[in-house]
Computed example of a mutant assay.
Amino acid sequence: MEAFLMLVSQIFLWVAVIAQTLLIVALARQVGILHERIAPAGALTLHQKVNVGEVASPMTVTTTQGQSMTVGGKREGRSQLLFFASPDCPVCKSLLPVLRSSARAESGWLDVVLAGDGDSAAYKRLARDHGLANVPMVLSEALGRAFGVSKLPYAVLLDEDGRVASLGLINSREHLESLFEAKEHGVASIQDYLARRQKEA
């Protein structure tokens, strides 16, 4: 009798193990399907003063190094990325290494400008600590107002003709790269691109 009960318990145990294995395989498959369906996250476009496609009015500003430079306007084969940050913003600091690597990787067509408003010494220290000493830095409240910057970190990508190619709130490397992707595809944002594709399908 004991042998029979042992055999029955072993059978039930193996049935439970096989059922659990099948459930894990089914769950893994569903996770894979969900991962494929999730759209890439792009920079969040907030309510802004300028829209994608508009020509940004050129502004002459002075960098923290004392050099005069123009933001916006036509630039032969060069785009400008304005990255608005603050020394008091933890998210901004976490993204500065991403900004540095993007400035190097995209140097063939992109000029990166670190922008903000406040204490010049704090911004210089921020740039030095994150290896951005060679990136022009502009402290101008008027520049931030011109692009409707209300939250940080925020980025604006201007194309070769001085038009706003893409813009938005940046919280990750993926968000920053989405600005480049949006420009490449000629859309306002990655979300806009996906919406168009969905309509065409």
Rank of each mutant, 00 (worst) to 15 (best):
Met1Cys: 12
Met1Leu: 14
Glu2Val: 11
Ala3Trp: 01
Ala3Cys: 01
Leu5Asp: 12
Met6Lys: 14
Leu7Ile: 09
Leu7Arg: 11
Trp14Tyr: 14
Ala19Asn: 03
Ala19Trp: 07
Ala19Cys: 11
Ala19Tyr: 06
Gln20Met: 15
Ala28His: 06
Ala28Gly: 13
Arg29Tyr: 15
Arg29Asp: 13
Arg29Gly: 12
Gly32Gln: 08
Gly32Thr: 06
Gly32Phe: 04
Glu36Tyr: 03
Arg37Met: 14
Ile38Ser: 05
Pro40Gln: 05
Ala41Asn: 05
Ala43Val: 00
Thr45Ile: 14
Thr45Trp: 06
Gln48Arg: 15
Val50Gly: 05
Pro58Arg: 14
Thr62Gly: 02
Gln65Ala: 15
Gly66Met: 06
Gln67Met: 09
Met69Gln: 06
Arg75Ala: 03
Leu82Pro: 02
Phe83Ile: 09
Phe84Asn: 12
Phe84Met: 12
Phe84His: 08
Phe84Trp: 12
Cys89His: 06
Pro90Phe: 02
Val91Trp: 06
Lys93Asn: 04
Ser94His: 07
Val98Arg: 06
Ser101Met: 11
Ala103Phe: 08
Glu106Gly: 05
Glu106Thr: 06
Ser107Gln: 14
Val112Leu: 09
Val113Met: 07
Ala115Cys: 15
Asp117Ser: 13
Ser120Asp: 10
Asp129Ser: 01
Asp129His: 00
His130Asp: 09
Gly131Ser: 09
Leu132Pro: 01
Asn134Trp: 07
Asn134Tyr: 08
Met137Asn: 06
Glu141Asp: 09
Gly144Cys: 03
Arg145Met: 12
Val149His: 02
Pro153Phe: 10
Leu157Phe: 02
Asp159Ile: 08
Glu160Thr: 01
Val164Ala: 08
Ile170Tyr: 09
Asn171Cys: 10
Asn171Phe: 08
Leu176Ala: 04
Leu176Glu: 00
Ser178Leu: 02
Leu179Tyr: 02
Leu179Val: 00
Glu181Asn: 07
His185Leu: 14
Ser189Trp: 04
Ser189Gln: 04
Ile190Phe: 07
Ile190His: 05
Gln191His: 08
Arg197Pro: 03
Gln198Lys: 15
Gln198Glu: 14
Ala201Glu: 12
